[in-house]
Simulated scan of single mutants.
Amino acid sequence: MFTIRVPATTANLGPGFDCIGLALNLYNEIRVELNAKNEFRLEIEGWGAEELKKPENNLFLQACQEIFVRCEQKMPGLNVFFLNKIPGGAGLGSSAAALVAGLVAGNLLLGEPFTRQDLLEIATTLEGHPDNVAPALLGGCVVAVKTENRVEWLRWEVPAEELAAIAVVPRYLLATKVSRQVLPRTVSFADAVFNVNRVALLVGAFAQKAWDKLAVAMTDRLHQPYRMPLIPGLNEALAAAQEAGAYGTALSGAGPTILALVAPERKQQVAEAVKEALKKKGISSDAYLLSPANRGVWIET
């Protein structure tokens, strides 16, 4: 028997569409043991408790199976207990967490034939982009680029004593597929230049721990403006976070979660400001007061 812990992630970090993500200290826990009858038995607490009991909806099982298929082996029956603390359909990487945990579980069951780089490549293929799976696997802040042949990446540790994260989750779901459908096929040259500039500044801010640059570095024109109509109160919530002292704000992933990076002592203040801004628009929400997670997925045996 072994247990896997995998962190939440916030991706599309500011202007880093499909390439920059940050791991957060909110974890799903998956306990795995072999089933003597060669059957699959799933027990789930927390998010997705009903939906994920169906194997066809369970990305953990699908990813685990992928490892066995690649090794031309039959997957054994498993007893799997899930404790899901990462909200589903919220833009905090719940799907990436399930994929990464499943790949790691399958790899361990087969004696670890794949390296972390191999697992990142497989996870990116399954997910379609690396910005959630990379920090879930590696921890910290990761910039990852999918090329024709491999995933190239760089990673930074983020000091929790200097930088905290607020994730305010509106109490409604927004499917990633729906959120992607509103994105344009092309963007203007001016908007492309805008994001290139901000991505460069964002990478520099994390490399030099220049958190005061995040207000500018986390602005975006490639996806956030197009998704704003799907997320009532988003503009007001982002503005409220800035006014309450956040370093930088953004839509987390495909939404609807609002992310604010803040000084640790301002976590509560900023969270309350964002929740109040959403409340004024008639939207209930839950606030998660988090820190960067510099350790990616890990296994306890």
Rank of each mutant, 00 (worst) to 15 (best):
Y172G: 03
N197Q: 13
G89S: 06
A175C: 07
A123P: 09
L202I: 05
A101R: 01
R116Y: 08
A136F: 11
A105C: 13
N149M: 07
T176R: 05
C141A: 15
A167S: 11
S95F: 13
L120C: 13
C141K: 14
V80N: 00
K74A: 15
V142T: 05
V169H: 11
F194L: 06
R180P: 04
F81Y: 08
K85Y: 08
Q181G: 13
F81Q: 08
R150V: 02
G77I: 06
G106E: 09
R155G: 01
K74S: 14
H129M: 07
I86G: 03
G128P: 03
V142K: 00
L202G: 05
G128F: 05
T186Y: 13
V158C: 12
V193K: 06
V133G: 00
L173M: 08
V145S: 06
D118N: 15
E112M: 04
A90W: 01
V100I: 06
A165W: 10
D191V: 05
A160V: 10
V199M: 10
R180V: 12
G88R: 14
D118F: 12
R171P: 04
G77D: 01
L183G: 14
L163G: 10
I86N: 01
H129K: 05
P87W: 01
V203W: 11
A160C: 04
G102E: 02
D131F: 12
N79K: 13
A96D: 04
T124V: 13
A200F: 07
T125Y: 09
